[in-house]
Write a protein that binds this DNA or RNA. Sequence first.
DNA 1: GCAAAAGTGTTAGCGATACACCCATGC
DNA 2: GCATGGGTGTATCGCTAACACTTTTGC
Lengths: 243, 243
Amino acid sequence: MRPYLFINDNLVIHILKFSDEIIDALSIDCVIFGFKESELYVLLVKHGIGPTIGQWALPGSWIRYNESIDAAATRILSSQTSVENIYLEQFKTFGDLERFPNRRVITIAYYAFVNIEKFNPKPGPTEADVKWFKVQEIPTMAFDHSQIFESCFNFLQHKIQHEPIGFNLLPPKFTLLQLLELYEAILNQKLDKSNFRKKFLKMNLLVDTKERQKDVSHRAATLYRFDENIYNKLLDKGFIFEV
Amino acid sequence: MRPYLFINDNLVIHILKFSDEIIDALSIDCVIFGFKESELYVLLVKHGIGPTIGQWALPGSWIRYNESIDAAATRILSSQTSVENIYLEQFKTFGDLERFPNRRVITIAYYAFVNIEKFNPKPGPTEADVKWFKVQEIPTMAFDHSQIFESCFNFLQHKIQHEPIGFNLLPPKFTLLQLLELYEAILNQKLDKSNFRKKFLKMNLLVDTKERQKDVSHRAATLYRFDENIYNKLLDKGFIFEV
DNA sequence: GCAAAAGTGTTAGCGATACACCCATGC
DNA sequence: GCATGGGTGTATCGCTAACACTTTTGC
């Protein structure tokens, strides 16, 4: 426990709880997935200061006493990459002794799916660069971030089959082929086009926007959108999402 | 960051990393499930000291600098309940500002399934009592432990249908009816006996031990055991566990 | 014989898979 | 007309759900 806590517990605790001092030995790292032209990407930062300067890593930093861990994740991601207003979800906490060099650091990993077209990432004051990397072409990363990524990607591959989370990676209006290619990219396998269509349409999760693709050199596809309200209503009725 | 880190970073860090001092603002809590006679239980401790004295809670405490979080979970559970040699798995980290009174504490929740007959829980030095509670009869708990439990139980209900984790709750050799009742207790619904049998037997996960129940006043059932090696081999072949 | 649980068999129907085929559009 | 992707139709097969039925054992 912190030495000066003994000065006057109640007072100091109160101050700490609302201070923006960082909590020792605890950090957050974010795995941000993006999707574009049938390829899955992840957002990395290049460190601009400190012992890991010049190395690529997951966006991540320390948690303050006066913020929830969810709020910390949002703040950290925004300050390092300028990516904002996205839904970050907690994934797993990594706490091996040797995961961070010369210090004990436990990190809480978060992930998110974003529509890559919607953001224009910019490095924060402590970052030298920010870049989308294809998931098959990820550089060596600082600390144990490669393991965190692998673990998270594996988790995603399972999750995408049981929960309708992939839509966040697509534009609000998308075609069934885009959705198919998203699943193929994440699961890393070919799927039957016809059966994929039928499966999704039968679920009634997708709403026909009555709009069509434009300026394509083939028959224009119907644009659909995902309706979260419909999904929640179906959930209440016992609906189980499976792909 | 801790004030005395500034004395000499490298030296102090090295000492800290191998010290058993506790990390500030970070704890572990454990949800231990047990099963006996068609009923699902959870293991709770009654606090024997501190501001929450007399209250029931999940087993939990602080993490030391010189132990991994997995090791901390094992140590804490053992010291408070004497339950040892079980496989604890991380569930989720809870980090809202208000979850702990008058102080900022982030907690990493772990869970485990145990064969209730195999343990004889005893309270540790800071616990007044340790007891198995039926999951429908859980008392009011300290902090946000009721929420942690609810969240974990919900997680279990999903997990049990996609991974063969229920076997840890049963004796090494068990009957199909015991397994059925376990699923019924966790999912809180009746299942068809015949179809349940067929589903499980077809998976080839269960090995017939060639032994039978003894001293029962009805036809003696075959005792089966779960074979983890078989499961892993099936997994490699692309097998997916679904109940 | 009766109670209790073990264990088998049967049926109907839904749903996944594989694959063939037609449609619309730009060049 | 041809390439490209959009979109439909269909046959097979396996699996599941529902439920009736038979077997074994102790008392």
